[in-house]
């Protein structure tokens, strides 16, 4: 069970790199990732060579074909380092600036990305960072140095995003940047051109990437709890809409369900992993839940 301070995400802290780093470390340590195997480990990792079995080695990597042929015990060893990288793609489009509390989706996305970066670097894997809106605004190439975590935090903290969005175009750019296949983690509300998303996913998976989509939505976007008369100001445009939300709640939720279903279907089509994240929920729980799932899948 996480300590209670990990439930609190301070938007001001998220805007400061050092604080973001501390926050991420606390969340991750709370999960005790350090005591577990990297959940991102073992996927799409290339076989490099055999070495003779020594007492204490993990018997899961015994090459039984060799044992059958030679009656000798050999362990498979794999390529881990410079050929495997996790790309973190954080959407900074205008819609990500919405938050029903003082914490916006972008804040949440930054913390999530920070935590993931922390996990990956602790496992001595490589991580790259792409901060996108209508295009890739900031790209940090792969690094596996734990010391680079501060730089990652700083970039995340500085990133504000813009009014425009084109996730699909951004994903295409990201796929071009990632020369080797690896994992691409997309953190976005995906309130964009769905066809563009599909093109981006297609390009990434075609390039051999495993894609994980954290579909982040605010609780109010998920439940639409408004009563009375409201004016809605579009974050991604100048238009406004004055309505009685209660009149349209049912239809909105129906449309939202259809939207998430479409996105899920698109992800499944391209073998991308989909996770709908409620930014109002405890991030540590969300993260730990997903990481545990990944570990199980890795076995």
């Amino acid at each position: 069970m996480n300590p209670p301070e990990f439930d609190l995400l301070d938007p001001e802290a998220v805007s400061r790199g050092d604080a973001l780093g501390i926050m991420a470390r606390k969340i991750v340590e709370g999960y005790r990732v350090g005591e577990h195997r990297s959940p991102f480990h073992g996927f799409a990792i290339e076989f490099a060579q055999h070495r003779e079995y020594s007492i204490g080695d993990d018997t899961r990597h015994l090459d039984w074909k060799v044992i059958g042929r030679s009656d000798r015990y050999y362990i498979r060893q794999y390529e881990q380092d410079t050929n495997f990288v996790t790309q973190l793609v954080v959407d900074g489009s205008a819609s990500m600036n919405y938050g029903s509390s003082k914490l916006t989706k972008l804040h949440f996305a930054k913390v999530l990305a920070a935590c993931l970066a922390h996990v990956i670097l602790l496992q001595r894997d490589a991580v790259a960072l792409a901060l996108v809106d209508e295009k890739v605004q900031d790209y940090m190439p792969r690094t596996d140095s734990p010391g680079s975590i501060q730089q990652i935090m700083e970039r995340l903290a500085r990133f504000q995003g813009s009014a425009k969005t084109s996730l699909g175009e951004s994903l295409l750019q990201v796929s071009r940047e990632a020369r080797k296949r690896g994992i691409t983690i997309i953190i976005s509300d995906l309130l964009d051109d769905e066809e563009g998303l599909a093109r981006g996913l297609e390009r990434l998976t075609y390039g051999g990437h495993e894609v994980i989509v954290f579909h982040t939505l605010d609780p109010h976007e998920l439940t639409f709890p408004f009563d009375g008369t409201w004016e809605f100001r579009n974050l991604e445009g100048a238009d406004r809409l004055k309505i009685s939300p209660a009149d349209f709640r049912k239809t909105y939720l129906k449309n939202l369900e259809a939207f998430t279903a479409r996105v899920r279907a698109t992800c499944e089509k391209f073998q991308a992993h989909y996770l709908l994240v409620d930014t109002g929920k405890n991030l540590a729980e969300t993260l730990s839940g997903y990481l545990a799932f990944r570990q199980k899948a890795a076995r």
Binding site: T229, E231, L241, K254, N255, L256
Partner: peptide, 23 residues
């Protein structure tokens, strides 16, 4: 009720507009 209006920024405008158009 029409004049007592609250306002908010909104990100999922497309979803909302589609819903309003329908109903």
């Amino acid at each position: 009720n029409k004049f007592r209006v609250r306002s908010t920024d909104w990100g999922a405008m497309k979803l909302l507009l589609d819903s309003v158009k329908q109903d």
